[in-house]
Computed example of a mutant assay.
Amino acid sequence: MKIILGAGKTAFEGWVSTQEEDLDILDRQDFEKQFQENSIEAMLAEHVWEHMTKEEGIVAAKHCYDFLKAGGYIRVAVPDSNFRNEWYQNMIKVGGPGPIDHPAYTHKIVYDYKNLVDVFEKAGFEVELLEYCDESGKFHYKYWNEQDGKIGRSFRFDTRNSLENLGMVSLIIDAKKPLIIQG
């Protein structure tokens, strides 16, 4: 089973799309009603974690960890606080640029790669950075397979990007549940 969290209109063959009203990732009971622990192969969350505080993000990551199979993963994309683009930073800032119906209105945090990795490591995951900007704004990219969870707002798939110009990037990670749990 593969789950898209906060899918919006995103739908991929072989993946189950969910919205907050279907599966509130902050509510463990929502998971328990629908899934067994250690039963989900993969999860995908594109621009979901910035709508929670860092502390809530850790809780949500722990819930995902508990319901993923050993060796399972969650691919997560969030806006990148280190991307050097004034328009972009204004669009993604906490509280958004306004008005109240703008998607960023409910942003509670803007992550850099260190903070996002920390959230998922605290939940027990092994984290691999796929796309991110470092402190100097330099963009880093590691090839990833879209069959494992396609991120639309990414270097390869956002039409605002080219080899000469980055227009829209995300901080993207794969957080993997270890095959052997230490404890």
Rank of each mutant, 00 (worst) to 15 (best):
K108G: 06
S154H: 13
L171T: 00
L166Y: 13
D80R: 11
F125D: 01
F35W: 04
K2S: 07
K142E: 02
L179G: 03
D24H: 10
T18G: 06
V76H: 05
P79L: 08
K93E: 04
Q36A: 14
D24V: 05
I151R: 07
H107Q: 11
K177C: 03
L68T: 08
K9E: 14
E135A: 14
A7T: 00
I40D: 01
T159I: 14
E86Y: 13
K176P: 00
P103I: 15
A175M: 00
N115Q: 14
Y141D: 04
D158C: 15
M43R: 02
F35G: 03
W15N: 06
A60M: 06
K54R: 12
I180Q: 11
Q34H: 13
H107G: 09
Y65V: 01
E56I: 06
K176A: 06
I92V: 15
L171R: 02
I180R: 11
S154L: 14
K69Y: 10
M52Q: 11
L166F: 14
G98Y: 10
E20P: 05
V76L: 07
E20F: 11
G167M: 12
S162A: 05
W87N: 11
A77L: 02
N115M: 10
C133Y: 05
G8N: 08
D66T: 09
V78W: 06
L68I: 10
K138P: 03
G72D: 02
F67K: 05
V117M: 10
Y132Q: 06
K9S: 14
K142M: 01
G149D: 02
E32D: 09
N38G: 08
K69E: 15
D174F: 05
S81A: 14
C133E: 04
A77R: 03
C64S: 15
T53G: 06
D134V: 09
V119P: 07
H63N: 15
V117G: 00
D101G: 00
G152C: 10
E50S: 08
Q182W: 07
D24K: 12
E13D: 15
I58K: 08
G183H: 14
E46I: 05
D158I: 08
V110E: 05
G96S: 04
F120H: 07
G8W: 12
F125S: 03
H51A: 11
R156A: 13
T106E: 12
Y141V: 06
L179T: 09
D158Y: 10
Y105Q: 11
D158S: 12
V59C: 04
G14I: 01
K142P: 00
K176N: 11
T106R: 12
A42N: 02
P178A: 06
A61D: 01
F157R: 15
N85D: 15
S154V: 13
E126P: 00
D148E: 15
Q36F: 10
A11Q: 15
D134C: 10
I100G: 02
A45C: 07
G6Q: 01
A60E: 09
S136V: 09
K33Y: 11
L5C: 04
Q29P: 00
A77D: 02
K176M: 09
G57D: 06
L26I: 03
M91G: 02
L116R: 01
F67G: 05
D101N: 14
G124T: 05
V94K: 13
Y65P: 01
Y88V: 08
Y73H: 14
N145S: 12
F31N: 02
E131R: 09
N145W: 03
Y111W: 08
F120T: 00
